[in-house]
């Protein structure tokens, strides 16, 4: 469908898709950047966010309240997971870390299946998100437009935490030089716990606010996970701005290539990722040291 209105629509859709990927990926990337752990349970965090929000919505009936309760739930899950399990893997080889998070991912998914069953659950958009918005020839679901704003705000909050708070300074310093942070005598334990929690919460938050778009199923995080990998690699592992840039690029690739041949759009993502890595091995905004 190559036509100007469609091109503009897809360009815009790429932006919407991209910001969501950016938000989920930023969680993955700050966890990896700070803790050095590639969290394969990140997709499960996204899924659990959705279910926590769904449960909260059943009781409160308020979308905003569900978002808050759901996010905090995933933050808590993240913190507890770090405390009980991930912590013991910092001095283990990377493959052990990858595997334990892979295992945790399975456990989380199957626990949710045990509790909620496999039937898809629905969260409807809040009343202020119903309907379609027409902007000239461009039309778009109202909720998704609002989602764009919500995600932009969430990313801004993450930016603030990372760049304007003491915790953020430590996290960023840790991404650049973990040994140095250690030597400064900062309580790295607490920082790691919080970073894992915040990273998980970013995915969980994305899961809830995206619930009105995507039906909730226990397996919903699986497909997202591989896409966020691609985002993180394109942007540069460990780089927050990189996750945002990578997210936007990935969103646009998925959207724009679908106009030519939709069947190939997901593969194009992998092709672009490989190209980026060949030309700029550390990713677009990645630090050279982290390769």
């Amino acid at each position: 469908m190559l036509s100007w209105p469609n091109f503009v629509s897809q360009l815009f859709n790429g932006l919407a898709l991209g910001t969501l990927l950016a938000l989920i990926s930023s969680g993955l990337t700050i966890i990896y950047g700070t803790l050095g752990v590639l969290n394969l349970a990140h997709g499960a965090m996204f899924m659990m966010g959705g279910y926590a929000g769904f449960l909260a919505f059943q009781y409160t009936g308020s979308f905003v309240l569900s978002v808050i309760i759901g996010s905090l739930t995933v933050l808590l899950i993240g913190v507890v997971t770090e405390r009980l399990i991930i912590r013991h893997f910092y001095d283990r080889p990377p493959e052990d870390q990858v595997l334990v998070t892979f295992g945790l991912g399975i456990v989380f998914v199957e626990l949710v299946r045990l509790g909620f069953g496999s039937l898809a659950r629905q969260v409807n958009p809040p009343s202020w998100g119903a309907g379609v918005v027409h902007l000239g020839f461009l039309f778009y679901p109202a909720y998704r437009l609002e989602l764009l704003v919500i995600i932009a705000l969430a990313l801004a909050v993450l930016y603030y935490i990372l760049y304007r708070t003491q915790l953020g300074m430590i996290v960023r310093a840790g991404i650049e030089d973990a040994v140095m942070v250690d030597m400064l005598g900062i309580n790295i334990d607490k920082v790691f716990m919080l970073v894992f929690g915040i990273g998980a919460m970013a995915a969980g938050f994305a899961g809830i606010i995206n619930a009105p778009v995507l039906a909730l199923t226990p397996d919903m995080g699986d497909d997202i996970l591989i896409e966020t990998f691609v985002v993180v690699v394109i942007g540069g592992v460990g780089s927050f701005p990189g996750a945002i840039l990578g997210g936007l690029i990935s969103g646009e690739i998925l959207s724009l290539t679908s106009m030519v041949n939709p069947a190939y759009s997901q593969v194009m993502l992998f092709v672009v990722m490989t190209l980026v890595l060949m030309l700029r091995p550390q990713g677009l905004l990645g630090a050279k040291s982290r390769t």
Binding site: S9, Q10, A16, L17, I224, S255, M259
Partner: peptide, 11 residues
Amino acid sequence: GTPDYNTYLLN
């Protein structure tokens, strides 16, 4: 298993 059909649906 496409998570987001919007791209296709826009077309």
